[in-house]
Amino acid sequence: MGKYFDMLAEDVRLHEGLKACMNCGVCTAVCPAAEFYNYDPRQIVAIVQTRDDEEIERLLKGEAIWYCGECMSCRPRCPRGNTPGYVIQALRTLSQKLGFFVESEKGRQQLALKRLIGDNILATGYCLTPRNILPELHPEQGAVWEWIYENDEDVYGRFSDVYRREGAGALRRIDDASMREIHRIFEVSGGNDFFDTIEQHSDRKAREMGYDGATEEYMMQTYTYNSENHY
């Protein structure tokens, strides 16, 4: 009893996010994710504070912890000073460390996020760059984005003298020495290990699901598939 809670308690966000919840439900009332998904942050916090291993393991392997958008609307409204969004962050981190995230459809999407955002940080120093916002993956970005994407040198060149080149300005190429520092930061602070953990557990699950490992095809499945069982 309490094994998973003790692991969660190693995360400072659990200390900051959960003192004692009285289950009033204000967090759920203001939660944008709770309006859309079958999601109740009040219930998540209630489960975590029971310290029940079985219940917490079910959370770590389930869909619910992945519905939150981390907008933190819950934080200023909680009358007890809790932050369910921080509790969610601690749960998601533990779910990935233990490899439980691959047991849910929404959890498996972490592979797509690691590759689309995480790998881009290591490649460019930015979370996103125009060249990785592909119009075919982003139809909602519309006709203007397609025009920007197809004419990027010209469009960005109007606002930046250093588009994809070194120097001060928008969308500059980050110099090699700075990139080496970022790589070293990821190495010493556990960022690379965390990425590897996501890849390894995804690869295991992909094989279980009949893929030839965590291939591009499997990643795209996690990125696009929606069972419609979340509402």
């Binding site: 995360d11 400072v12 966000r13 981390e70 962050q89 998601r92 981190t93 990935q96 972490q110 996020l113 690691k114 955002i117 995480g118 940080i121 979370c127 930061i185 990821f186 602070s189 556990g190 960022g191 965390f194 990425f195 996501i198």
Partner: peptide, 11 residues
């Protein structure tokens, strides 16, 4: 990356 839960707090 942090708020997508792929970049750890320490990083």
């Amino acid at each position: 990356g942090y708020h997508s839960d792929v970049v750890p707090l320490e990083t």
